[in-house]
Write a protein that binds this DNA or RNA. Structure first.
Length: 269
DNA sequence: ATGGCTGGTAGAACCAGA
């Protein structure tokens, strides 16, 4: 008699929250309504010592791996299931809190990243932040090419690679987040591990798929000038274990929203 | 209308986001 291994399902979410302290009400709503097992946050904008852990623990998320800094950036992984082997990589060697990684008991590694936005001008000779973004990608490519084992790479990549990832390819082709040089780097990053883009696995191009809408357009829902800046990528061996995926666009219209919507993927291991 | 808004921290004619 053989015994069949029990299937484990895990619902994993990623959300650029644009200040976790400013979003207490909607992050609670999200967790109660969607019930993810694990939530990866970017742009927490809080130091670890005053991270609002109580909210998460009250909702059953007793495992928190934090990497914050004052004012800007900041990432965290919050989970109902145990996490270990946490690390915090600094691909810029400048102290910015843009990565946190963990391993689950089933062996899955989760890497949560907040890639630099890159400033206004897509030219590193006049905009150092754009150069920083390009260098960040180069170092991520080196790191990614050496990865072994099943990995989920999630976060705010700050690049919308496909024409159907932006509201107007023509109007954004020279706008940071959709320039050819950024897309080339993102493509090299993807190839460096054979990453599978879960968003496009479930919503193949040329279907519209956005995760971010600027605060500046108050009529954002009507004009729908969105971009797909947030991504969930998996190792090739995990692609078939992603069984559902969605971008929760409705969260963009909740009270005091983040400008990014959450991404949710369910896995069956 | 190639502008618009939001958050943190300071307490700005700020910075950063993208």
């Amino acid at each position: 008699m053989s015994t069949k291994a029990k299937t484990q399902t895990l619902k994993i979410a990623s959300w650029n929250i644009n200040s976790v302290r400013a979003r207490l009400e909607i992050v609670e709503r999200f967790l109660v309504e969607q019930q993810p097992d694990i939530l990866c946050l970017q742009e927490t904008k809080v130091i670890n010592g005053v991270f609002p852990e109580g909210l998460f623990r009250r909702l059953g998320y007793n495992h928190l791996v934090l990497h914050g800094q004052p004012m800007h950036h900041g990432v965290a992984i919050i989970s109902k299931v145990p996490m270990r082997d946490d690390d915090r990589l600094d691909w810029q060697a400048n102290g910015e809190a843009r990565h946190v990684g963990v391993r689950l008991d089933n062996g899955l590694r989760i890497e949560n990243v907040y890639i630099p936005a890159g400033g206004e001008e897509p030219d590193r000779t006049i905009n150092a932040k754009f150069g920083q973004k390009l260098d960040f990608f180069e170092r991520m490519i080196d790191w990614s090419s050496k990865l072994t084992g099943p990995t989920l790479l999630v976060g705010d990549f700050n690049v919308a690679p496909l024409e159907c990832d932006v509201w107007s390819h023509k109007q954004l082709v020279n706008v940071v987040s959709h320039t050819a040089v950024e897309i080339e780097l993102m493509d090299r990053l993807q190839k460096s591990h054979g990453w599978v883009d879960i968003g496009r696995k479930f919503y193949p191009a040329p279907e519209r798929l956005y995760t971010w809408w600027s605060y500046r357009a108050l009529d954002w829902a009507k004009t729908d000038r969105g971009r797909r800046l947030d991504h969930m990528w998996v190792s090739p061996s995990l692609a078939d274990q992603a069984v559902s995926h969605q971008v929760l666009e409705s969260a963009r219209s909740w009270a005091r929203p983040s400008d990014h919507a959450p991404l949710i993927t369910e896995f069956a291991f």
